[in-house]
């Protein structure tokens, strides 16, 4: 990574921390410790399952909310505060600014996820008294959740590069919801005919596929995640994210900032 991108990323991370984004970790810790203690008393034989399901779902939802609400303001905030002009008046290219912002927010989410993962394993240790090899599969689910954040960050940045924060939030959240139905959409495309089939197929490939990135329930039951799924999910996320960030760069390059 070139130094200019690194500095912008580091500043984005610092700004997010200054905005008290990591305060969500407190809510997460309370949620998880409460669940770990309470579930054993109000349910039967699902303590471990709840810690994993609740822990990973919370990691995912907290991260998605952060990715959307920070991501949509990444560009517009800089324009509103007029700090963007200061940055771009230096030898910083617009694509470097977009890339720096993307890496900065992604880094914030990785750090956030790391601390939450510690919380999940801590709670698991509390309810199960020991960790076993199948528990390590939770790491794969966490990795997929990070991949999900990377895509959402890219999408939020993309919409932020040409739209208002409110609309960007609506667009990104809509794509998150639609993305969870990506497999249904492809199934619908497969049974449709004519123009509908083409449109549905195009939509199915256009929206991000979040359903393949969700293996929470699978790892909660101690089931292994195939190596191929890890490889293809990584490759897919990389390709999709680069496409979206490149799209954001293309729009931002042509945007008049006067």
């Amino acid at each position: 990574m070139n130094r200019r991108i690194f500095y912008i990323a580091a500043n984005t991370f610092r700004e997010a921390v200054r905005d008290r984004v990591l305060y969500n970790l407190i809510a997460f810790a309370l949620l998880l410790s409460g669940a770990a203690v309470l579930v054993g008393q109000i349910s039967i034989e699902i303590e471990r399952l709840v810690v994993i399901n609740l822990g990973l779902t919370a990691v995912s939802l907290f991260g998605v909310v952060i990715a959307i609400f920070i991501g949509i303001a990444l560009v517009s905030k800089e324009i509103d505060k007029r700090t963007l002009y200061t940055v771009l008046s230096r030898p910083v290219r617009r694509w470097e600014f977009i890339a720096g912002k993307f890496f900065g927010l992604s880094g914030t989410l990785v750090v956030n996820t790391f601390f939450m993962a510690l919380g999940v394993f801590g709670a698991l240790l509390y309810v199960a008294h020991s960790l076993h090899v199948p528990d390590l599969r939770v790491l794969v689910a966490l990795y997929f959740i990070v991949l999900q954040f990377v895509i959402i960050t890219a999408l939020a940045l993309f919409f932020s590069s040409f739209s208002s924060p409110l609309l960007s939030a609506v667009f990104t959240f809509s794509l998150f919801v639609i993305g969870t139905f990506a497999e249904d959409l492809r199934g619908f495309a497969a049974i449709a005919h004519g123009l509908t089939r083409w449109l549905a197929t195009a939509a199915a490939y256009l929206v991000p596929n979040f359903s393949a990135l969700n293996v929470i329930n699978q790892v909660a039951h101690g089931e292994a995640v195939g190596r191929q799924l890890v490889i293809y999910n990584t490759a897919y996320t990389l390709a999709y994210t680069v496409t979206v960030v490149a799209g954001a760069t293309l729009i931002f390059e042509r945007r008049s900032l006067k």
Binding site: V39, I44, L49
Partner: peptide, 21 residues
């Protein structure tokens, strides 16, 4: 299942706890 946005595992835990209660 559709409304759970892919987090059906947690929802199942909630419904199981509700059944027990």
């Amino acid at each position: 299942k559709h409304l759970s946005l892919g987090y059906e595992g947690l929802l199942a835990d909630v419904y199981w706890t509700r059944a027990v209660q």
